[in-house]
Design a protein around this nucleic acid. Sequence first.
DNA 1: GTCTTTACGTCAGTCATGTTGACATATATC
DNA 2: GATATATGTCAACATGACTGACGTAAAGAC
Lengths: 165, 165
Amino acid sequence: MTDVKTPTNPLFLREEELRQGIELLFFAYRDFTAEPDAILAEYGFGRAHHRVIYFVGRNPGMTVSDLLTILRITKQSLSRVLGQLVEEGFITQRPGLQDRRQRLLELTEKGTALERQLTERQRARFAGAYRDAGAEAVEGFRKVMLGLIDEADRARFPLRGPGWR
Amino acid sequence: MTDVKTPTNPLFLREEELRQGIELLFFAYRDFTAEPDAILAEYGFGRAHHRVIYFVGRNPGMTVSDLLTILRITKQSLSRVLGQLVEEGFITQRPGLQDRRQRLLELTEKGTALERQLTERQRARFAGAYRDAGAEAVEGFRKVMLGLIDEADRARFPLRGPGWR
DNA sequence: GTCTTTACGTCAGTCATGTTGACATATATC
DNA sequence: GATATATGTCAACATGACTGACGTAAAGAC
């Protein structure tokens, strides 16, 4: 570290700004996951179950391999969690129409209810943050977050067209 | 769900916007932690070690209970990880000056080197995202992220005074 | 109609990281 | 001297990740 850390040194400003970003992400993620975790514990589930429920709710009829791609975990890790959710009636599997090897995943009513209960807290957190920050800040937030995400997954967040606001 | 989901229904827009926020946070965190995780694996360490190294590097001389407050884990969880880092020469402990029960934590040279190696990738990710998004977007990002963080921890991110940009 | 690939599941074992509860020690404080 | 605090430690446990190997059914290629 050869940088001299004084308030007038732009290298220090930059370093400080970058570290604040790192910490914002850490604290936001920590607090963002804490509420759902507490609810999940009542069901004997963990954060991994939440992720599965969330993405299946978001993409009804998605395949197991779609889910593996999103979560970036091994199929063994997924299969335990997914198996529990199917067995306990939160998720259903049905064979694909074109490709019957696939198992298309969907939430049951019970699964939808839990998804809503879990995500509601997180939506409320975002709603508050967006409201307090304002529309312009939300655009900035989106831009920076997209830049943090690996290029391969940015296409999951389409730019909003004229219908959007 | 009684909302009718059409592009002209503001409730749908809001729901979609909130879900995008949730997903941005998930993907950003997933990708943000992946690179350091790979480096840590070479040392036989995990993400928990990174968090300890990061915050001790950021706050030299911090106490164990400071660290517990930030990480929100139990002291047993911390003590295993911290013990390894001390034993392997990445962190030193020395008694507090006023209160000799405390063990003030600091990175050794070895610890500083690892911290830099790990955080460098994350800083680079933020630097790229900030550069592409622009200064105004960064301000928006900060505002929204602060709003996501529990009120108790927002004071960790002081507003920048006139010296700041 | 075989052959290969793909989608998915499963078994066995391991590791990292979190938990609770109880207890120990040194120091600070009233 | 009694109590509270900062820290560490032991034992036991759960979750969720991993690797590697093997199995099955269906799709796709030749």
